[in-house]
Nucleic acid binder design. Sequence first.
DNA 1: CTGAAAGCGCTAACAC
DNA 2: GTGTTAGCGCTTTCAG
Lengths: 334, 334
Amino acid sequence: MAAGVSATTVSHVLNDVTYARISPETRTKVKAAAEQLGYGPNRVAQALRNRRTGVLGLVSEDVATTPHAGRIILGADDAARARGYTLMLINTAASAGPQSREGDVEAVLERQVDGILYATMYHRVLDAPANLGKVPAVLVDAVTADGRFPSVVPDEYGGARTAVRALLDAGHTRIGFINNVQDVPSTSERLRGFRDTLTAAGLDGGLAPVEASSSDAAGGYAAAARILRRGHPPSGLFCYNDQMAMGAYRAAAELGLSIPGDLSVVGFDDQELVAGSLFPGLTTVALPHYGMGAWAANHLIDALEGAGDGSSAGTTVLECPLVTRASVAAPRNP
Amino acid sequence: MAAGVSATTVSHVLNDVTYARISPETRTKVKAAAEQLGYGPNRVAQALRNRRTGVLGLVSEDVATTPHAGRIILGADDAARARGYTLMLINTAASAGPQSREGDVEAVLERQVDGILYATMYHRVLDAPANLGKVPAVLVDAVTADGRFPSVVPDEYGGARTAVRALLDAGHTRIGFINNVQDVPSTSERLRGFRDTLTAAGLDGGLAPVEASSSDAAGGYAAAARILRRGHPPSGLFCYNDQMAMGAYRAAAELGLSIPGDLSVVGFDDQELVAGSLFPGLTTVALPHYGMGAWAANHLIDALEGAGDGSSAGTTVLECPLVTRASVAAPRNP
DNA sequence: CTGAAAGCGCTAACAC
DNA sequence: GTGTTAGCGCTTTCAG
């Protein structure tokens, strides 16, 4: 064009089309001209022609309510960008009816996204919008009852095992668990991990003290107070999440128990702002939000580019690593 | 088409084109057919034709590192969606060079976004990427030194006044401030608000105790300990942020001071997970992240649709409201 | 080795 | 009232 060549040629060199035989001189000339003019391809026109936009819709339930959202988004964005894709974001409300969530999916569908990442902000079983299947989709931090979509979730069971093992390894034999009361996968899986790990260590997991309450600081305080007031209280405490651990810290303080001297505590979630700010720093199990976001984007792109092999469905489980801070020590009287 | 009419007619009825005169019967017939076929317009093709995509690029520095990100995104998404726009999200790293941040802006520019929201995750002065001016842009939680872009930031000064007034209104006359050490707008503005409010109340703002430290729990602990160990210590404490307030809680506990009985505390940021989990709940000043996101999206769309009146530049300041919990009470000995 | 022509799905102007 | 034509910027045959 400006550089004395045709649009075709420009397209050929800029896209490194294999079957095109272009002279090296023309090649460099075109590249130079593009550089000068600050030319960049119009991805919208490309999309119309190629019937692929290179955009992934990220439909996220309640983006704002948890700090986890950011890490999922970041993981998905990094992975998508590394492969030339961009994210289009739509927030949807878990509380809103299926109607409205379907409308939210429709909004990205209209924009011709190549695929959809549907993310929830805590691990749960999801009633997927009906139109979610119109393009390839993957679920992040959720599964559907029918297993219709590939999905990625944290290894709640393994995470609980890791937490309990940290306590066991420090020498604790009396270990309690303060659990959430909500009926979500993490509640039952973490409990199961807790009991199994104790049992595997030769302790009686079935009899270990467990108290459940709401999964916030107040609930953690109440549950911890109950557990610590029992006769022969535990010297190690595994908490459903960091918020509850925060409540447990307060209960321990009120009972004159120092952490980790008199009581070792392990949390779950690794909410930086909480776990890192408590004193002493809370040893906790991290949720793999970044990893789930990245896995989901990569998996979706694989499906998109892999000629739709369909090998996709099923649930992938990502490890929850231990983040060691300062709330675990050997028990005073083992 | 399928309903026995032409594409033009379909376009006309589906877009409610004013100058088109279509018979009511045709209208309903078309709408019915569209419904049946599950027809939705292809926004990509529309975009190519109209040279407007209806997409706003949200370039966000460090999406993941703070929970504030979610609220900005949510505010922007709500506002954008209410006006028929969608967000395209790109994460960019404040730490990365200008090179890379320019590349991130380029990525959304290629996608032909109609405008850009450039958001930072804490209030700061920004060195904007050179290509940000290629489409209308607005800054969220940031300003540039040259004031080239319209921007929206929190009213740090007013927020500090609100915090101090809460303490004053409860009857405190000895009020201290623990501040951040970083050189960012919030550090100086909150200090200014603190001193001015005391002075306006007839106290000597210039002499009121101030200690600065890193803006985390450890820093808050250290600064609060210094301030509370002085002779004639304050009965009310304003903290730069909720993290520092968390540290102050610990310092108070160690000195045997109860909150709010012996010491009233006000924070800043309203990090739900921290302020709501502390005991007693922390009274704090909320940052208007949702509002900034929404304002920015609306302002950008106004500029886009308002035939580019250019009345835009300048900085808009949003109020920081007080969130009352339980950490403020009347002083014991006024 | 390079260019001309056709068409992705849509809409604005202009016929009919 | 409704249909025809042209063209948004690109890529892909297919001729030169």
